[in-house]
Structures are given as C-alpha cells and as structure tokens.
Design a protein around this nucleic acid. Structure first.
Lengths: 219, 219
DNA sequence: GGATTTCTGTTGAATTTTCAACAAACGGAG
DNA sequence: CTCCGTTTGTTGAAAATTCAACAGAAATCC
C-alpha cells in the first residue's frame, strides 16, 4: 500500500488524516487494490453497490447505457478521485450505472459498510471519514448541477461552448486539454458525434476557437 | 416549533433522532421559520450559500436560468424535504441556482455551519446530523442520475416516457399526478413546451397514455 | 514498417425540434 | 356571472439535430 500513499493523501476521503494513521486505517477498512485493463468494467450496472472505488492510476468513466445502446458519460474519474460512493452510501440495491476503465488502471476498493459502521476495534476515525464523505458528496452534487447546466442548453454549439468555458475556468487558462475524444465528448454533451464535429469545424472557421485533437483554445 | 414536529420527524436530516431531543436541538442550531408567498425567491442565485432549508408546508422548486432566460427545473421540493444542503455543505461561495416558492410556503432555515461544527454546548448530536446529511446527499446524487438518464434521451417522446415510467414506478401505480404544469414539465425535461403538448396529444391518440391536466395514466 | 483498426471530419437527406402566433379552455377575482 | 389573465393545444415554417455512409488521418498491433 505504501507506494500509493501520495495519491491517497490527495483523496478527498482521507483529507485531514495523518499519514501515520492512513496505512493502519486502510487495513482496518479492508481496503484492497485491483488492477484493470483498458475497457474493463470495474462496476457493472445492475450489480449490488457495496464498494467505494478510489482511482490510484489510470482513469475511468461513469457511464449509463440505455435500451437502444445510447451511451451517456456521467463523469471522468482520475487518480485520487472516488467513485461509486453515492450508491454505496445510499445503500441502494443495484448500481444504475457502470464504471469502465478508459486506460489500464489500479483501483482501491473499500467496502462502504466498513466506513459507515463503527468496527470492533472501535477506531476513532469513522467520524472523520463520514464527514469527508459528506463533503465529497456535496461537491459531486454541485458537479452534477454544472453538468446539467451544460446539457440543458438546446443546441450543440451552446452545449459545447458552455462546456469549454467551464474547462477553461477550471484550467485557469484559455488553452487546455479535455479528457474526451470526439465520441466521448458527444456522449457527455448528449449530442450527435458528427454534428459535434461539424460544429467544431464551423466554430473554428468563425474564429471562435482552435482545436487540435483534444486540445482546445478559446479565442 | 411544536406544530411542525410531525413534518420535521419525517425530514431525512433528523432521522433516528428522538422527538424529545428535536426541539432542544433546533434551538441549539438556531433554526428559524420563515413564510414565503407564491413565486417568492427563497434563495437567489449568486448569493452566499450558508443555509439549509427544510420545507414545512407548500412547495418550492430549484431552478437554473441561463443567459437567454431559459429556465430549467432541477427539482421539486415538498414538505419534510431539504434544499440547499449541497451548496452549504460544500461551502461553495455563491449559489449557482435559485429556489422559488411554487405555492405559499413555510421554510425552516438552519445555518449549515451550526450543523457541521460542534457548538460550545458540546451537544452530542452533530455526528448524527452529519451522518444523516451524508445519506441525504447520496440520495440526491442518485436522483440527479435519474434526471440525467431522462434528459439524456434525444427526443421529446423518449424523455416524456422515461419520466412518466419513473413516476409510475414511484407511485406504485400506472395512474398518478405529476407536480408540474406543462411549461414546468417542459423545463424539467429540457424541451419545447408546444412540442411537448403536441407529443402528449399524439401519444394519447396512439393509445399509449391518457392525461387530464397533471394527472397521467400509462396504458 | 506495413496492415488493420479506430477516430475524425464531411456531406446530404430525413426527421425533429424550436419558434411564433393564435384560439380555446380554464381558473380566479370581483 | 362575467371579465381577465393564465394555461394548454394546434399549426406551419424555419432551423437544427440525427442518421448513414464514406474517405482520409491517426493510432495500434504484429
């Protein structure tokens, strides 16, 4: 576990927890690390939601796929970030979403009941973890608001612009990388891929933005 | 406060808390009750996010309004439900949304810092409240997933059907009321109102559903 | 390094949505 | 009961999205 310490220290679940205590805590929580190949399904829709995942390396996406196979990407998860916590904490029966690896990745899995319910050893850190979980869930909530604000727009152009402006703001710079290829961006914005490509070309011609692969610049 | 006890007991924030303790707790938290007229803005976008609201009577909506005045309805809030907790808990600077009364309503307002940070009296209930807040935030998260699953559909008909099927499931019956008028439903589904009306008529003619005002029946 | 697969941009046609405008239905106030 | 403002349904035209198909570019695999 030791080699993951730097990543784990940045994880919102462990904020404010001393490094010395972290390793012991992980043992008590029964944390285990699993590696997944690219495209592997880490959590499958319809399966019980018991674990919280922490990305240690690589990256993953939370996705929903409907009847007709339309995919929508709910979020991108990168190292030190958590996923699955909402379902595990709400003790919902089955996952309504899937989490898939977008690159080979290592994930730490923790059974959520080990966090929520005080253990036999009577460790004192459960309260801190629950507080951190609450903060994390509140933050995720706000991220969903942002996503809805973007996808609520009625046209491809407006959605794209709203998304790019937000990314620029997060990056603190008008030139930045996005974590999606074209199809993924379309699945995040809930629009047609070819229409999105066309719109990007059009905006480039109009001098609104510049793009090269997944690097964008707002002009 | 006493007359609100029945509503408050059902509030997820106070789950598991003995009735005897509730009133004392509210005093310690500095809870106050405010009445709002219909259409009144309870929380305004852009203002600091410090309070959690609990609806005691009437109802309210969380809404976002963009540049061009397009409204989207994020959620309907009814008695015993909480609003604003995500922003208050995440200690976000300013509200990205507004909450407006859809009927005359009474709301209990609690400053979130009073919940999150232990008070001088050293009350023992903060941990319980934080745990309840965490559960609530996890549940809200899942509700957002459901909303995204609905609005991610590409056509008005699919959105409407996904919404109605979910409502039927929640009601446990194929015949149910929805909390929206047509314009509000359109703003929730992120579609055009007239197109929505047309689609409903069409589906009625096709024998897929029946509707009378905001009462729907799936056939 | 070459072959193969995946990704991206383009196009035109078909389908849908949006928009604007209006009339009927409804509900509340006086 | 009547008036008046709001809500709902309808319509047609304009605009936009989706869909399918393809070709070139890029990345991956052996």
């Amino acid at each position: 576990m030791k080699k993951y310490l730097e990543i784990l220290k940045k994880c919102p679940l462990f904020r404010g927890i001393a490094e010395d205590n972290l390793l012991r805590m992980l043992t008590c929580l029964g944390a285990r690390v699993t590696a997944f190949d690219k495209k592997y399904t880490i959590f499958a829709e319809g399966t019980p939601a018991r674990h919280i995942g922490i990305v240690l390396s690589g990256s993953a996406q939370m996705i929903q796929v409907d009847y007709y196979g339309n995919r929508s990407i709910l979020a991108e998860v990168v190292p030190s970030e958590i996923f699955g916590e909402a379902f595990a904490c709400a003790e919902s029966r089955n996952l309504p979403i899937s989490v898939i690896a977008t690159e080979p990745c290592e994930v730490m899995l923790i059974e959520c009941s080990h966090i929520l319910h005080t253990c036999q050893n009577n460790c004192g850190f459960h309260q801190a973890l629950i507080f951190n979980l609450m903060k994390d869930l509140a933050t995720k909530n706000i991220l969903f608001h942002q996503r809805i604000e973007i996808t609520a727009k009625r046209s491809t152009r407006e959605k794209l612009l709203a998304y790019l402006v937000l990314q620029a703001k997060n990056a603190g710079c008008d030139s930045f990388e996005i974590p999606f290829d074209r199809q993924e961006l379309a699945d995040y914005l809930e629009v047609d891929r070819s229409g999105l490509s066309a719109e990007i070309s059009k905006m480039r011609k109009e001098g609104i933005l510049d793009s090269r692969k997944n690097h964008f610049t707002l002009l």
